[in-house]
Design a protein around this nucleic acid. Structure first.
Length: 436
RNA sequence: CGGGGCGUGGCGCAGCCUGGUAGCGCGCGUGUUUUGGGUACACGAGGCCGCCGGUUCGAGUCCGGCCGCCCCGACCA
């Protein structure tokens, strides 16, 4: 994309409503604009990031055997009356009426809906297990939205729902999602720690929050160094029951807690050298809830002996839009964002330091063509300084800096945003590093 | 929902106390200049001063009501 033809309205100054760094940078880098309290419009660069994250989430859900669907944002109140949650949910649920005065709502979550849909299509134990997910906008009418997209009222969420014949099956589904999450966060460039969370009335140990580490995170976290440097993408764990058990044992044997749940006695038993303290942001939550919805909503399948079985369910959420803010919290400096390669809106920015110059222009056009949509070409009539500042702000992983000096010598300057490292290289070398 | 604060060109703000035809910086446009880290100069465009009502000869400024947004807390994916 050519920056001169793009709607990427960057700001030199920070709008006064933005307090935390990710919110400030998202506004300044032209990723989003707020339209109401806690509601944001996603502009071209921000939308690309959001889609990149969603795509990685999608690929890992698929790899774990979940199937993608898309459920509506608007739901009928009757559905929620079946589970008994309509009256209990409170003011967080946005309630609306249609023209016939029917009670509707903008979905804050989809347990009821998926249960009803699944109920209509499954009759036998042979149909289970299954796991269905969608990536859809949700609305929770927060009393006090804040932190930009990290705690908005409207947000994009991946939520998956598993259906198993019994508890043992549900455990396998649960562990699969947990592994999928570790892989997902690693691909996003993040260090994520699963932490035991409240299970509410169900009990048991099957509820975990996923916290990504960021110095500016909301909550303090204590965790075992064993969580660091585990590579979930190396093929050591597959989605088989035995691998999953080995994986789950490893996960849960390591200490991890947020400051509210921190157990100083247990902490003291961890070797000092392995104790890690930091800050983090919750970006995912998985839990098993048994027959909480299947029972009242009459989801039944026939068992092998003809008796009715009530499936055990679990649900698994990832805050996709929240991750955009979370990733920025984890990767930024004073100049701006430092996108991880996997989520960046473009792999590289091409900076033409002397717009209008035939030599630099020809080189830029050449690289731009060769990068085939992976680059944002800053072809604006701007001074070099302005282009540097905007590129740093927008956080492209690579900057290809094309100036008259290098043009004369047949080289470009390649800058790595994350480290600040610069090298004078040939065009081919720059291209292979960026695309490699 | 309790407490606090703020709404004035696109952004950041001053003006309000003490009413008299709206100002600064950045950004934007044009020209010159500059040409590797937000260049300098000149000229210029752009404002229902959040909305409604009231007081007054006159309201951005005073009074009342409403709306919106932000921050702290409680709450929370």
């Amino acid at each position: 994309m050519r920056l001169s033809r793009s709607f990427i309205p960057t700001l030199k100054e920070t709008p006064s409503e933005a307090q935390i760094v990710s919110h400030r940078l998202m506004l300044r880098a032209g990723l989003v604009r707020q339209t109401s309290a806690g509601i944001y419009a996603w502009l071209p660069a921000g939308w690309r990031v959001l889609q990149n994250i969603a795509q990685i989430v999608r690929e890992e859900q698929d790899a774990a055997g979940a199937q993608e669907v898309l459920m509506p944002t608007i739901q009928s109140a009757d559905l929620w009356r079946q589970s008994g949650r309509y009256d209990g949910y409170g003011q967080e649920m946005l309630r609306i009426k249609d023209r016939h005065d029917r009670d509707m709502l903008y979905g804050p979550t989809n347990e009821e809906m998926i249960t009803e849909i699944f109920r209509g299509g499954v009759k036998s134990y042979r149909d289970l297990p299954q796991n269905l997910y969608h990536i859809q906008w949700k609305f929770r009418d927060e009393v006090r939205p804040r932190f930009g997209v990290m705690r908005g009222r409207e947000f994009l969420m991946k939520d998956a729902y598993s259906f198993d014949l019994d508890y043992a099956g549900a455990v396998v589904s649960y562990r699969s999602m947990m592994l999928a999450y570790m892989r997902t966060f690693q691909r996003l460039g993040l260090k994520a720690i699963p932490m035991v969370a409240d299970t509410g009335p169900i009990g048991g140990d099957l509820s975990h929050e996923f916290i990504i580490l960021a110095e500016t995170g909301e909550s303090g976290v204590f965790y075992d160094a064993g969580f660091e440097n585990i590579d979930w993408l190396n093929g050591n764990f597959d989605y088989t029951p035995s691998d999953l058990e080995r994986f789950f044992t490893q996960m849960t044997s390591l200490y991890a807690a947020t400051d509210e749940k921190h157990d100083t006695a247990a902490w003291a038993t961890i070797p000092e050298a392995r104790r890690r303290e930091g800050r983090g942001i919750e970006v995912g939550h998985i839990f098993y809830f048994g027959t909480k919805y299947s029972e009242p909503m009459n989801l039944r399948v026939a068992g092998p002996d003809g008796t009715q079985i009530t499936p055990h369910m679990g649900s698994y959420g990832i805050g996709v839009s929240r991750l955009v803010g979370g990733i920025i919290e984890a990767f930024h400096d004073d100049a701006g964002i430092k996108w991880p390669d996997a989520v960046a809106p473009w792999k590289a920015a091409i900076l033409n330091l002397r717009q209008g110059d035939a030599a630099t222009g020809a080189i830029c056009e050449d690289v731009y063509k060769k990068l085939q949509g992976n680059a944002l070409y800053d072809d604006r009539e701007e001074r070099a300084g302005a282009k540097f500042a905007d590129a740093d702000l927008m956080g492209h992983p690579w900057q290809i800096i094309v100036g008259p000096r290098g043009a004369a010598n047949g080289v470009v300057e390649l800058k790595r945003r994350a480290t600040g490292e610069r090298q004078e290289v040939s065009l081919d070398s720059a291209l292979s590093q960026i695309l490699g």
